[in-house]
Amino acid sequence: MALSASALRDRAPRTAGTPLRPSGNLRRRMALSRALEAVATAAALFAVALLIDVAVTVITNGAPAISFAFLTQSANGLSGGGIANALLGTVVMVVFGAAIAIPVGILVGLFLTEVAGPRSRLAHLLEVVLDMLQGVPTVVVGIVVFGLIVVPQQKETGFAGAIALSIIMLPLIARASQQVLAVVPPSFRQAADALGVERWRTVIGVILPAAAGGILTGAILAVARAAGETAPLLLVDSLYHPNAIQLQPFGNGVPSVPMFIYTTYDLPSVSGITLAWGAALVLLTGILVANVGARLMLSRTRRRMGL
């Protein structure tokens, strides 16, 4: 030991009598800490302010367009009409895309957490690919789908749009599933293993139910994201009858809310701009509701897992 007992005794009383206020270097560190806290708080407030600004602008501009007719009538070019056909088209494409992306995404998540070992090279590669796919500009996804589906068929279809949306949703769902599955307590797997039940039954009976809420949250967030995508639809599903309900994705273009906003805003009329704002408000509301619902569901799952 470097310090003898007597040396320690000599040192101890030096600060013993002074008041318990920060002194020396501690005072400087506390000032820096407060400054950084202020900057971080300001940044957070700025982000919230931006969101509020977007919401307020969309609400003030879009609210005049909202009416029962707006939500229940199909578009009618310059003479107004509503977004019913666009909403239904978006629902058809998103449901179709989600029907592909959700099962595949969950399976990819299960592969990463339950099948591949922690040091699996394939799993690591897959993670990199998923992250890259998530970063691919959606217009590129649109071009790829255009080449793969639209060109051979010689027409733009809702099906092509749904495929493009599923490609955008897949990495989001896969990564979200992976993250949720990874926090399912290992003690559940251990308990199931010790009962002599095969792993796949454990996955279906214990692990997936425990993670279901979180996976659903990820899926909803992905769906909300896909519902607002415009760029790929511009390429693969922009030729459709704008004033008709079109629910059959094979062989036809299907209208969508983002495309409605895009085309209506370009119409040479003031009412077109209002309609576009109205549609934007509907889209934003839908996405907001989905997000809030998803977060509520996630907190419920975490409680269930005892986290």
Partner: peptide, 20 residues
């Protein structure tokens, strides 16, 4: 080993009931 564990069960240090 699944069959092994069917016949030879185990209880762990920390209670680990399923969330069911």
């Amino acid at each position: 080993r699944v069959e092994v564990r069917r016949r030879i069960g185990m209880v762990f240090q920390k209670p680990n009931p399923f969330p069911k």
